[in-house]
Amino acid sequence: MSASQKTINLFVETDLSVHGLRLDQAIANLFPEYSRSKLKTWILDGCVQVNDQVCTVPRQKLDGFERIKIEATAEVQVEHTAEDIALDIVYEDEHIMVINKPADLVVHPGAGNAQGTVLNALLAYIPGIELVPRAGIVHRLDKDTTGLMVIAKTLEAQTHLVEQLQSRTMSREYEAIVTGNLVAGGLVDKPIGRHATKRTLMAVRELGKPATTHYRVMKKFRAHTHLRLKLETGRTHQIRVHMAYIKHPIVGDPTYGGRPRLPKNASDAMVQQLRGLKRQALHAAQLSLFHPATEEWLTWQAPLPEDMQQLLIALDDDTAIHGLDD
């Protein structure tokens, strides 16, 4: 975290809606973009004025029609360059934003990707998001995995969403196209940790962190299977590692999938689609969570991207010609 500071200047003239409320309750309602604990700290530190008088008592009752001013500093949590990068926004309010991430877009800056990321886009799009750890990014998708991500726009929302992730009440479902024939659904319950020799990769490791992936068959093809998957945990590369572990790697996965496997007598269209796919055929199709402010259970869905749709059409045509058993 950076130790640099940002000045916060807030002012509001209240009305009768705050009558009878404590000062800490009132400003939490008036400035929901800041957490209650942060606002209470500012009161105690003498950063809050009521009618031009410093007030350090969070429980002081208000009558209404007070002038409330806050002059404080906050630590900047993220220091990266803001960039005007278009985001596909599925949902947005003052607390959260849900985006549909395209392929070839990195979520967080890192080695070799200092710019052009989701985080850089968020810094430009949401004023003040640099005060939220990781610019509000709650969970990540791999660079070439498409689909839904939720962003917290405030510290309070981020705390709530992280708790949902940790308690496994947030639901994330994916679609994938894998190599080989899976007859029925199942689950992979194997721990995941760093690869023993290739430190940038993950692998099933006895001493790794617990990881559970549920999957069910959506459609079977001659030499491939379309799956729906649900995560219980969120380990790095979890679906990709688990599918490779059960010998059904995700089509197009350059890291865990090996060389493309072409079935016998594959049509030119099918070969073109399989070889033309330059990423893993994995898509975060559905996201469900409790809204951090209203506690309402919300669900969003994102359709399969064009490259996966075209691959499914080619696989379907191939199966229609050759049948399920070649």
Rank of each mutant, 00 (worst) to 15 (best):
D88C: 02
I126S: 14
M1E: 10
K153N: 04
Y215R: 02
V217T: 03
V178Q: 00
L274E: 12
T197A: 01
Y215L: 02
D316R: 14
C55W: 13
Q273F: 00
I151Q: 02
T117M: 08
V18E: 03
Y91V: 04
V251F: 04
F11N: 11
T294E: 15
Y125P: 05
D317N: 13
E295H: 08
A103R: 12
P303W: 09
L315Q: 11
Q301M: 03
I250W: 15
V271L: 04
P133T: 05
G136K: 15
F11I: 07
P133L: 08
H283F: 12
E130G: 03
V150R: 06
V188R: 00
Y125F: 15
M308C: 07
K230E: 15
L207S: 05
Q60K: 14
L207V: 01
K38V: 14
R240Q: 14
A285W: 09
A157T: 04
I250K: 09
K101Q: 06
G20W: 13
W42C: 00
D144R: 08
G186Q: 06
A184K: 08
H139V: 06
Y34K: 07
D316K: 11
G20V: 09
L148C: 06
L282M: 02
D93E: 02
V271M: 13
Q164S: 06
S2M: 02
K6M: 15
T159A: 14
Y174W: 00
I70L: 09
A302Y: 09
I313F: 03
R261V: 14
H226V: 01
I239N: 05
G112M: 09
V90A: 05
W297E: 14
V178T: 00
K38I: 12
I321V: 13
E79H: 03
T299K: 14
T236C: 12
A176N: 09
G252M: 14
L23Y: 04
